[in-house]
Write a protein that binds this DNA or RNA. Structure first.
Lengths: 198, 198
DNA sequence: CGATAAGCGGACCGGGCGGTCAACTTGTTA
DNA sequence: TAACAAGTTGACCGCCCGGTCCGCTTATCG
């Protein structure tokens, strides 16, 4: 098919520099960080960015793909943990701990760019559903909560802390704990709306 | 001081049209909706927008001010409700029910534009703190949760449902219910981080 | 009415964005 | 080391945005 020649040494280095710089820049300014700023941060010219990633969306997709795949692998590993409730909490903790995201929204926004992203996301979603089902059957989760609910609530802790100007970098843990308490069976009140589909 | 002459009839009408169009446009496309689109939607020229609101931020601020003041009034009314827990839930419900916002983020973002916004927001925040204190003392809220926590979590239901493409317009109720369950004293687990200040 | 100023509109401006390109530099390979 | 392809670069392009401005329209009031 396509025997993909290895990258030249400098090109490979620049590509790595760019991915790191882009991740930092997106973390600081959100997705609207400019390509020029990313290039400057990486110490390369703007043209180099577009040589490695045809469009800005491709650059975003590359980062998102990396994150989603890592989370997906973690989730699959946690599927065989002893305590399903703790496993789900650990998954959510690790998901939020990727502090590099203002929030995970670009996961949705420019995901359709690369089919690989869509596929990885689908896999990760399926894993989350499995984690949630296990936790629910184990009695660690309320009965009326679905995997989709957890997926949606996943990014809330990060989003919420974004409003605090000089927040501690670990503040999200507080809100993850509150939300997770809301997912527990103890003291749960009936939910007023049916769960959505994705 | 400044005897503010009443607006001309057409000007007053256009101003109202603009506010409505802007609210709709912001609801659909977020704060990044363009002024030109807002003007088109209102059926006026772009110059008219800037005649009524010197900058785009002033337009946003006008809408935000209106919302915040309404919420503040509601909160003060609810301060004398019989059931403090139900009162807080009703406040949060009404806050989220202003479906017109993608999320309430511009409440933070361009709030400093008008001092009136800052003042109204401060008042509303104080009212929320009072509502929360009352609910906590009444045993409807866990001990370790503060007014600031509630303020931060307030917009999470709206934000979360933003990820669902064809969500029911009432879906936010589901996530408000989950989060509110997390704020209840029953089955609460200790929080890992101290509350932030605002 | 008719005069006046308040209000209106849209061409226009400067700036920043994503993306292109052709001239130049450099890693690689025989 | 010579020669070539791979990679780099920053000036440049078109686009869209917020905001300005001035000639025109129209509500208001004596």
């Amino acid at each position: 098919m396509t025997p993909p020649r290895p990258l030249r040494a400098d090109a490979a280095r620049n590509r790595a520099l760019l991915l790191a710089a882009a991740a930092d820049e997106f973390a600081e300014h959100g997705v609207e960080a400019s390509v020029a700023d990313i290039a400057r941060r990486a110490g390369v010219g703007k043209g180099t960015v577009f040589r490695h990633f045809p469009t800005k969306d491709d650059l975003i997709a590359a980062i998102v793909l990396d994150r989603v795949e890592a989370l997906g692998r973690l989730g699959e590993r946690l599927l065989s943990a002893k305590d399903p409730g703790a496993a789900l909490l650990e998954f959510l903790t690790e998901a939020a701990h990727q502090r590099q995201q203002r929030d995970l929204s670009f996961l949705q926004e420019s995901g359709d760019a690369l089919p690989a992203v869509v596929e990885a996301r689908t896999r990760m979603f399926a894993t989350i559903h499995a984690l949630v089902d296990r936790a629910r059957e184990h009695g660690a989760l309320r009965d009326d909560v679905t995997g989709t609910d957890v997926i949606l609530l996943m990014c809330a802790p990060n989003h919420v802390t974004g409003y605090v100007p000089d927040a501690s970098p670990d503040l999200w843990q507080r809100y993850l704990a509150i939300i997770f308490d809301g997912l527990r069976p103890e003291g749960a009140h009936a939910l007023p709306q049916p769960p959505p589909a994705l």
